[in-house]
Every structure is written in structure tokens, then in C-alpha cells.
Design a protein around this nucleic acid. Structure first.
Lengths: 231, 231
DNA sequence: AAATATTAATCAAACGATTAAATTAGTCAA
DNA sequence: TTGACTAATTTAATCGTTTGATTAATATTT
């Protein structure tokens, strides 16, 4: 009986190393920050030689930026199936339909916003995105080139959609500053669960990591708050 | 004519050095993080010799913890005049008065919560607290002993008061998990303006730092959201 | 004179980066 | 299938810097 897996080709070997380094870097950069993470620790954690950071990514900073490309792709592909119906809904509300009742528009907008933010709750709280979210937060505290990557590839589209729905829910068609401000306060209600986790675990008397029940409670509260704020 | 200022006594000289180091440390630790800030840069920024970090604070970590003691004191003394009437209001609502109308209780609670959060908006946005807020956020991403200081001296009292008002506004007297969760989402609406500033400046098309008009708009929106959520 | 505070110089350790040598994979003629 | 050649990848060792910490000498204050 033959082992079904191919023996690692050169391309596979290289890709495996890159992936191991990207994963370790996301974890360690997220947990401790760029400067607190040494190349040696990074390599040890990935199970590879530390010179391979230079070989595959040019430098430590190269690896850092590659982490953001990597995260941006993962987030995009996670958000794609969510954004697809959202954006067709957006087009239906802005262009296609003319005789939609006002109250119906508002209801559909609030629904869309809830969908967006509940998905954001997942990204913020799922263990698989935990490190990614931390890396992004750190980058925002002291932005470099890497922030551009994240903003252009993921955030911009998300924030724009959210803001547009808020605008539409108020019966207008062109978003203004108050809509954008509102979108930020809505995002904040979710983001806080990643950023202030140390305080939250104290305040809620949770032990990390909190489970699915807590996640559901958070989603319910967010949905309820959105409804109250926008209705 | 004599110079009116005292010549620096030894105590003054020592205290001046400590203050200069604490200020620089707050700024640089907040901006770039603990590990990205070297003792040499710290000392240069403070205009003192780098060996004085060891002399006055024992070590770099000693300075870091001293920064948190320092920040905790500054925040406490800034919050004291805010919390004083708030806590007497709290006592009035929980203990003293018996014949207060329900609608009146709710109104007073919402008012108290607005006061607390508007003050939080100031702390988050005032330039004089900017670095402090950043240091605290960084610490929450990877908590050490320093977080204990901040939680015990400032955050705990603030969060407890906020949660209790939320609970009272619902006509109950003992806060439960849903009240605590609500307090977190309220905090999040404000906190986001410090944490996600890079994204916000993009989204709002602001140039940093944003002025007093923006601050007022934020406060108005927060107050409006609180009212809608809690009514 | 004694205590306190500051300075310049130096320590070993850890840092990111780079090197030359070794190993592995892919290609192709025989 | 084999063996030889090339390219890609990995390894161990070392480079010059920078790090936090410490020292002994100096300056200041009491």
C-alpha cells in the first residue's frame, strides 16, 4: 500500500516553510508586537532555520508585511460570501427598486448592518482570527506601510458598505460625516471585545478563551443595540 | 532683582529627572511599545543620562510600571471631580430615596451614564491623555503586572459605576452579566476612537489631530446612542 | 564631610543580517 | 531506471550593532 501523499516537491517544501513562518509570525507579532519578537524565536516557533526569514521574505520587515498580505487574503475570502449578498442588496436598494416602502428599506438596512456586524463579532472572537485581529490593532497604534495593505484590501470596502446602509436606513442616499461617525461607533461596540479583553475578562469574570455561548450573547446584544440606535 | 524660583534642591533635581523620564516613557512606550523603545532613546528624549533609569527606577521594567502608577494617579485625579457627584447620585438612587418615580430614575441614570462616557471621550481624545491611553491599550493586548495597577486604581471603580447605573436604569438593583456586557459595548463606542484612529482618519477624511468640533460631534452621537439604547 | 545625584565608559548578551557550505529536488541524456 | 548536472532550499557559523545593565569617577546638595 502506497502512501497517498506526494513526497514534498521543492515547491511544496518552500511553501511549507513560508506558511510555517507566516503562521508563527502572525501569532507572535500579534501576541507581543514586532520588536518584542526576535527572528530566532520566530524561526524556533516555526521549526525552521532563522536564516530562512531572510531567504524567503528578504528581512524581518518583509515577513511583517507578508503577514498583512496573508491576513488580508484570509479575511477577504472569509468575508466574500458575506459581502456578496450584501452588495447585491445594496444595489437593489440604491438602484434597481423604486417602489420599495420606506419602512421596508429601513428594515432591510438594519438587517444588512446586523449581518455585517455579527460577522465582525466572529472575526473578532474566533480563535482562528484572534492573532490576525491583534496584529491589525497593533498596527493601528503605530501605522506603517502594512496598514495600507489592510485598509485597501479589506477595511475600506467593509466600512463603506456599512456606512452606506446606515445612510440608506435614514432615508438618504449619499452618506455624510454623521453616517461615517455612526459606523465607527457601531464597529467600536464589537472591536472592544478584542482590544480590551484583559479588562473584559475581569469585568465579566470570564476565563479566557470565552466559549460559543458568550459569543451568541454578544451577537444578540449587538443586534439589539443596532436596532435601537437606527430605528 | 532676584530670580523668584528656588534654585533646584536635590529633591527637586531628582524629582525633575523622574518626571522627565516618566513623561518621555509615557510618550514613547505609548507610541512604539515597550520593546521598540530603547533606554538610550528614552534618556535622550528626556534630556538625561541613560544610567539614571536604573538609578531612579531600578530597571526599564521598573520605569514601565512607574509609568502606570503615574498614569493611574493622573487619571484618578482627573476623574475624581466627575465621580464624586456620580457616586452620591448612585447612593441617592440605591439607598436614600424611596419614592422616586421610575421614569425619573431612568432619566437620572441615563444622565449619569452620559456624563461618565462623555468624560471618557475626553480622556480618549485629549492630547494630554493620548499617550496614556495608548500605553493602556498596548498593555491590554499583552497584559503584565502593570495592568493590575491600572485595573485596581482606575478601571474597576469606573466600570462598576457604569454597570450599576445601567442596571438601575432597567429598574433592577443588582447588576447581572447582561448589564456588564452592555457596559462594555458602551465603552467600546468611545474606545474605538483611540484604538482604530488610523482607520478612522481614513474613513472620516480627517487629518490628525482632530479638533474640538469633532470632539463635540462625537460626544453628541454617544449621548444620542446611549439614550436610544437604554430608553 | 556625608549623602545624594549624575556622568562617561564598559560589560556580556541578544539582535538582524549575511555568508559559504551542505543538502535536496528537478531535469535530461543515456 | 540510472547517474550526472543545475537550481532551489536549508543549514551552521559568524558578522558588526545595539541592547539593558553596571561600574567607578565626578559633581552637586545638605
Amino acid at each position: 500500500m502506497r502512501i497517498s501523499e506526494h513526497p514534498p516537491s521543492s515547491k511544496n517544501r518552500s511553501e511549507l516553510t513560508r506558511q510555517a513562518l507566516l503562521d508563527s509570525a502572525t501569532r507572535l507579532f500579534g501576541k507581543h508586537g514586532f520588536d518584542a519578537t526576535s527572528n530566532r524565536l520566530l524561526a524556533e516557533h516555526a521549526g525552521v532555520n532563522q536564516a530562512l526569514i531572510g531567504y524567503h521574505f528578504g528581512s524581518k520587515e518583509g515577513l511583517y508585511e507578508a503577514v498583512f498580505e496573508h491576513i488580508a487574503e484570509r479575511l477577504s475570502s472569509h468575508l466574500a460570501p458575506v459581502l456578496l449578498p450584501i452588495e447585491s442588496e445594496l444595489q437593489a436598494l440604491t438602484g434597481g427598486e423604486r417602489d420599495t416602502a420606506k419602512s421596508d428599506v429601513k428594515k432591510r438596512c438594519v438587517n444588512a448592518i446586523s449581518t455585517l456586524l455579527e460577522n465582525y463579532v466572529c472575526i473578532i472572537n474566533f480563535p482562528e482570527f484572534e492573532d490576525s485581529a491583534r496584529v491589525i490593532v497593533r498596527e493601528q497604534l503605530d501605522p506603517s506601510n502594512a496598514f495600507e495593505i489592510m485598509w485597501n484590501k479589506v477595511m475600506h470596502k467593509y466600512m463603506t458598505a456599512l456606512t452606506l446602509f446606515i445612510c440608506l436606513s435614514k432615508g438618504r442616499t449619499a452618506p455624510d460625516q454623521s453616517d461615517r461617525l455612526m459606523s465607527i461607533t457601531l464597529m467600536g461596540q464589537v472591536l472592544v471585545f478584542r482590544v480590551a479583553r484583559a479588562s473584559i475578562n475581569r469585568h465579566m469574570q470570564w476565563e479566557e478563551p470565552h466559549g460559543a455561548d458568550n459569543l451568541e450573547k454578544i451577537q444578540l446584544l449587538i443586534r439589539s443595540n443596532i436596532k435601537k440606535i437606527l430605528d
